[in-house]
Amino acid sequence: MTAPLLEADNLSVRFGVGRLTVAALDDVSFTLTPGESLGLVGESGSGKSTVLRAITGLAPLSGGRLRLAGADVATPRRMDFFTAVQMVFQDPYASLHPRHTVDQILAEPLAIHRIPDGEARIVAALREVGLGPSYRFRYPHQLSGGQRQRIAIARALILRPKIVLLDEPTSALDASVQAEILNLLEELRRAFGLAYVLVSHDLAVVAHLCERLIVLRQGRMVEETTAAALRDGSVKADYTRAMLAASKGFARAPAAASIAPARNI
């Protein structure tokens, strides 16, 4: 049993004050060991992205405890936190600065963390994500969606983090490009011993990349299960089963175990 790299105990995030308080996350706990890959699944509004934002400090924690390699994480996050934890965002069209070249985008984390030998690191980072040095002086608008996502991954990896948080890394991409990015993520994970926390609404993508997964609904954990259970359909919660059925495509007969109308969707 290896020591957990990241431990989250009873995380909760609340937005708003008084009567308008919304509990975006309520009592979410999990651990992540080095090299492991954990999936977070749920509908929009289930709080799956909020988990990642809470880890990185983009959403304020209103309760719970977060530990990285056994030590409590400080708020605001310190520099050394970001050398260990990096994030890749959903939309590669929005997460890269439109007026910075690829070179500037990749140089920024190196400059912030005062890492010498930037030139070589940038060329190496581009090679790692399968892009040649010819991409170095292009602007994001000169790249396709898949290439942009590769740049976003290179930016996350250039500091050699131990954990990479992936927020729907392929949902803005075409199916064929999604396959390339998923393969790249798997390769990089093997090469650098990375741990992933992957947020996705696509159960097949999560089962492909992760061994363990957590199902969230309205900020609460519904179930913690494994990809293997997802494959053979032995998941326990009704909600997970309904999601599994819905992801299999359209069935003309209305599903018997339709998802309970928790709200007027």
């Binding site: 064929s176 396959a179 492909h208 494959r231």
Partner: peptide, 20 residues
């Protein structure tokens, strides 16, 4: 066929995914 093949599937695992 390539488009069908490159989707990750719940049933049956293929690593790495075939690329189109």
């Amino acid at each position: 066929r390539g488009l069908i093949g490159c989707l990750p599937k719940l049933a049956g695992d293929s690593h790495p995914l075939p690329v189109l």
